[in-house]
């Protein structure tokens, strides 16, 4: 306190001057509209600067929260997108309410790989987050795999990069369908083996999920045709496919639950006992 007083006494002229200057400026501000305008313009500029810095700092610290919200929103949008694509399955969608038995949740990828012939993906969401075995796993631009086991907080997914994994696919502008399997080398190089040669297929055609497997809804884009090794005299094409997205590089995935799967399973068993 004594030091503050000493400093005040030492700089009393400066303090006095600044005080009186402030009074004079307030006086000008009150008397002259012109000066008032300019002062308020500077005031606005300065406060804008501070607001902007303040906003940047707050924004930086809220980024993770924003990110989380965006992912939630993306999950909702993904569900809507899939629902929208699935309308093709129900030609009467305009007159009756289209059923969409799929439910979408999001999850982070903890571990991923493509070095083995049988690759697995581990997700940071498990039973507690509503994950069940046999849920389909897709990413922004393709399929990732199928849930095999779940623990409380994690789940193990058979990657699409697994030699036993086959996915029902079809062409976007053609009804021809077949099953997609990994070639086992580059994580984006896949092959379709059983599309009949009567189908009109060209290089560059887009592949989407076929919706025949009860795991994946129809219409998830997967990749495009890069090469046609036609006619091996057995009536089937061998098609080389390149995926849109490398499944070993995804960070965030969506899990799809088919709520009708039990029903489909039941009816299937009744038919083929």
């Amino acid at each position: 306190m004594q030091r503050i007083l000493n400093a005040l006494i030492q700089f009393r002229n400066v303090v006095l001057y600044l005080l009186l200057l402030f009074i004079a400026l307030v006086f000008i501000n009150g008397n002259s509209e012109f000066h008032k305008t300019i002062f308020s313009r500077y005031g606005f500029y300065v406060s804008q600067r501070f607001q902007s810095i303040n906003h940047k700092i707050t924004y930086f610290f809220s980024l993770s929260e924003v990110n989380k919200k965006l992912l939630e929103e993306n999950t909702t949008l993904k569900a809507l997108e899939l629902q929208n694509n699935s309308i093709a399955l129900y030609p009467d969608a305009l007159t009756q309410k289209a059923r969409f038995p799929f439910k979408v949740v999001g999850a982070n990828v903890i571990k991923n790989g493509f070095l083995s012939q049988r690759n697995y993906v581990i997700l940071g969401r498990g039973k507690a987050g509503g994950i069940q075995p046999e849920m389909a796993v897709i990413s922004k631009n393709g399929v990732v795999g199928l849930v095999q086991d779940v623990s409380e907080n994690y789940s193990n997914v058979i990657s699409i990069l697994h030699e036993d994994m086959k996915i029902n696919v079809r062409l976007k502008n053609n009804r021809a369908f077949g099953s997609l399997a990994w070639k086992g080398k580059h994580p984006q190089d896949f092959q379709i083996e059983d599309i009949v040669t009567s189908a009109q297929i060209r290089v560059g055609d887009t592949l989407i999920t076929g919706g025949m497997s009860s795991y994946f809804p129809v219409g998830i884009p997967l990749g495009k045709v890069v090469q046609l090794d036609s006619i091996q005299l057995d009536g089937y094409y061998t098609i080389d496919v390149k995926l849109f997205e490398d499944p070993s590089q995804v960070q965030y995935v969506y899990l799809i639950e088919n709520q009708d799967r039990e029903e489909i399973k039941d009816i299937n068993q009744k038919k083929n006992p």
Binding site: Y17, L20, L21, A24, L25, F27, I28, N31, S32, F34, H35
Partner: peptide, 9 residues
């Protein structure tokens, strides 16, 4: 308006 005050002060 107050220009004299500021300048003189």
């Amino acid at each position: 308006a107050g220009a004299h005050t500021v300048a003189t002060l």
